[in-house]
Amino acid sequence: MKRKYYFAYIFLLFAAILGCDKGLEPQPVTTSYVNGMIHYVDNYDNWLAADSIKDLRVVAFKNFPPTSVFEEVLSGRAYFTNQSLPTFVDSSAFSLEIADAPATMNYIAVVQQFGGIMDWRVVGLYSVIKDSAAVLEVRQGKIYNLRIDVDFKNLPKQPF
């Protein structure tokens, strides 16, 4: 067979391949998500009394150290989960939509409201090195999956 026919075939094959689309494609995403799982140490046994947990949320603070949960959220310097997290479970998932990525989250934590509207404390911390807050650079259109451990009997150092 003449060599030119091989070349003709290969050329046509590549032309066909390059002419192919890529199939399914996602909608271009501008928002980013910080998703993840919260794991509660020692499962049910470690939970606080039900009446001491008024609210439980994941908050991603841009500021560090944050002044207070209430102030940072009101000023738009923190993202928080829309609903209170489920209680008396082994683990639960969360999802935060980050609308203004790229952004830097300097402190991501599970916070508990134990009293009035200003009474919040950190019960779990997103960390890479134990007990040290990890910084998360949130890029546009990216989805991050984090793990946060909560030990109600061994709370992290409070930043407020």
Binding site: N35, M37, D90, A93, S95
Partner: peptide, 9 residues
């Protein structure tokens, strides 16, 4: 990624 409310443990 799976549904975000999935228990990944």
């Amino acid at each position: 990624i799976p549904p975000t409310n999935l228990d990944r443990d």
